[in-house]
Amino acid sequence: MNERDEFYVGYGKAIPPGMARVIRVTLVILLSLAAVVALIAISGQRKLGASYFEFGLPREFQGIIREFPYPFLEIERPGEHGGLPGFSRYVLVGEGKHGAEPNVAGLDGRTVTLKGTLIYRENQTMIEVTSGSVVLKESIPPRPETEKVEELGTVTLRGEIVDSKCHLGVMNPGSGKVHRGCAVRCISGGAPPIFYTRDATGVSRYLYLISPEGRAVNRDVLDVVAEPLEITGRVTRIGTTFFLAAEPRSYRHLAP
């Protein structure tokens, strides 16, 4: 019987020899393609930057809560700091896609201990606060101000709004269009929105977005998250943290 006369019935005993030869070769090609396509698909992706989430390794912290515009924990640096900020500032978020506001409400200026998990990328560090772990140190009086607000002038910057929690390390990638849906959910849930920008030399800048009046802008930026934007606003610094104050309606879309 030549190959032209061969006929295959699936419930029969075996594939006719001519067809079997073709199927064997096809199978080898398909299995090879599976490996090759997988290698191309994983190698041909944008390289992801370094970021960390110490998942499963909660630590204990003690510091002063700054509730506004976004929750921060200030931890005093021991010893001399030679003119550098005397406090390390850690932005706080809640578990899941939530901000830390419920964890620290009413504790502005108060010293607390809390448990949390570190999230960090470049020079930015965040703590995911473990629910129910914040304990007020009632014996320590409130400290309304530790660092001065430093005005750095008005600037125009180009970049992208990212949700601080994912971008700083919980997810990687935590920026761009593939992550937009998640970023919208996180910012909507209370994670502070960061304007992430890179200068001509590739140095990253992280600026927490606030309104001209200094309030959180989470609800006002949801429609423009993860898009190329140009923002003109007033830059301020508190300790090691930069803020960009601008009216969200003035953000300008850029061509991708």
């Binding site: 599976a34 290698l39 190698s43 992706q45």
Partner: peptide, 28 residues
């Protein structure tokens, strides 16, 4: 074929994308 694909993608992915989270490698 599927096992070969996923092993190659995730196995090699842990080396060429060392900072990708496990979830990212699994999803992709």
């Amino acid at each position: 074929g599927i096992a070969l694909y996923l092993a190659a993608f995730i196995g090699v992915g842990t080396f060429v994308q060392p900072f990708a989270t496990a979830e990212t490698l699994i999803i992709r």
